[in-house]
Design a protein around this nucleic acid. Structure first.
Lengths: 256, 256
DNA sequence: TCAATGTCGATTGTCGACAATTGGAATGCT
DNA sequence: AGCATTCCAATTGTCGACAATCGACATTGA
């Protein structure tokens, strides 16, 4: 409208720069609330009053409101206009199913990628780079957990990007932002805080990379799925310890 | 914490009552902004300044911020912390693909339902009731568009609910709230504002109901898909008229 | 001339206060 | 007693103002 701005008002959006570890306040609150709901600190259907949450977390209601909308995206809260927010206590079964769905999708992506020779060649190059930066962080102290996780994620993204199925890639990347799985993924840095776990994960991905190089589609699928299943089982074990609940054993299978 | 409240602070969340037509202010703004982006009034990558939008819509920045988060959910905007919001101009191809994906899912649901005798019996009862209330609204003036749409939606939900595939039902209902398709669905009342269109839609659904009663899975699938394809083509035609763009003819096929 | 650094304007993030609406309780009527 | 109505407290929704942060430009030095 007015041309007094130093930069044209329209044009290309800035590239979405990767946030290293600087979570915004609403994101921090959303993560803490999500953890509280998943741990069972809020009962299913319990009301979440904005003022209470604001005082508990030492901020005003503005960021809390934003965090509650984020929880709604994850399916962890129900927002009723003018009536407030209510916690949704997810059963361990639902959480297990989210991991299983992702394992299935990611497995398909890996298999499809392994079948495509040219795509494998390109993917492997990028994966090697990402995995190398992960390898540098393996023996660092706990602070490196998040950076390590990002490197591993970049490795995985290569598989989805080159698998040749746009809708699978889309579904997998959407999950990171919008689904329960994405929430769990954010909680995973706790999982990567010991060098042991980082070594283990790196070994898995080295194996996946080897399987892709060898064009062994079954090995690639199995390894990728097993890595997700392992995370699933760790997450469910810790949640089951916090709650009394036990997940349906049928959902802990590794052949979905 | 304190027991002075008239109602216990925890317990069952109130049932999500269907809002008849009272959209909250942020929802109204989100819808208007979405329409503006889809119509091409905002260029792809154009910056969306909170203050400008607030003044344009006659509210403060609070509701605008909330509307922008909603646009992000729909994939119509990118939000960069501390750097602002940017419009995402969706191509007609992307929109067409959203309808095609829904047509495929809904078609599968209809087919699965038709195969299950007991489920059909229960679904038909509910569908008849929903369709009857839609029929009452066919000849009303334009104000009945939204109520008619809700009745049609309830009819469709019966199919998804009884189709026997939880993940399909989940995906279809999620789309209503979270995807581009849901946005288009909200725009559809404009589509139902003439009695002609309402008659046409009612005829389709009467046919679908008949196909289900006859356990004709192919007819049910075809009719449901065609109804969605029809909507797709109307939406794309109006958008194509507003923009210069023309969608890829391959995406206008009816056999996806 | 180019790179690094300091400063500044513009915009988003956050806050506290006020207004509007809801659900429930108390009240009055049949 | 049962039901409808009125009123009220509690909570969410909205607003305007202030603070924090980012990008761009100007300045300085090599």
């Amino acid at each position: 409208m007015d041309a007094t701005q130093p930069t044209p008002p329209t044009g290309e959006a800035p590239r979405a720069r990767r946030r290293t570890s600087a979570l915004t306040i609403p994101e921090q609150i959303a993560n803490r609330l999500a953890a509280a709901i998943l741990n069972g600190e809020f009962r299913d259907g319990e009301r979440l009053r904005e003022q209470d949450l604001a005082e508990t977390h030492g901020v005003s209601r503005g960021p809390v409101r934003e965090a509650l909308r984020a929880l709604e995206r994850y399916g962890l809260a129900i927002l009723l206009p003018r009536r407030g927010a209510y916690a949704v206590g997810l059963s361990l079964d639902v959480i297990a199913e989210a991991f299983n769905a992702r394992a299935a999708l990611a497995g398909i992506a890996a298999r499809q990628l392994a079948r495509r020779e040219a795509a494998v060649a390109r993917a492997v190059v990028e994966m090697e780079a990402a995995l190398a930066s992960a390898a540098e962080l393996v023996e660092e102290p706990a602070g490196a957990a998040h950076a390590f996780q990002l490197a591993i994620r970049d490795t995985a993204l290569c598989i989805y990007r080159y698998c040749g199925a746009g809708h699978i890639e889309r579904a997998l990347t959407d999950q990171v932002d919008r689904s329960i799985w994405g929430l769990m993924w954010r909680a995973q840095p706790l999982d990567f805080q010991t060098p042991e776990r980082r070594r283990e994960s790196l070994a898995f991905w080295t194996g996946i990379l080897a399987a892709l190089r060898a064009r062994d589609e079954h090995a690639a699928e199995r390894l990728l799925r097993d890595d997700i299943f392992n995370t699933r089982d760790r997450v469910l074990a810790s949640l089951a310890a916090l709650r009394g609940e036990q997940p349906d054993p049928a959902l802990l299978m590794r052949d979905a």
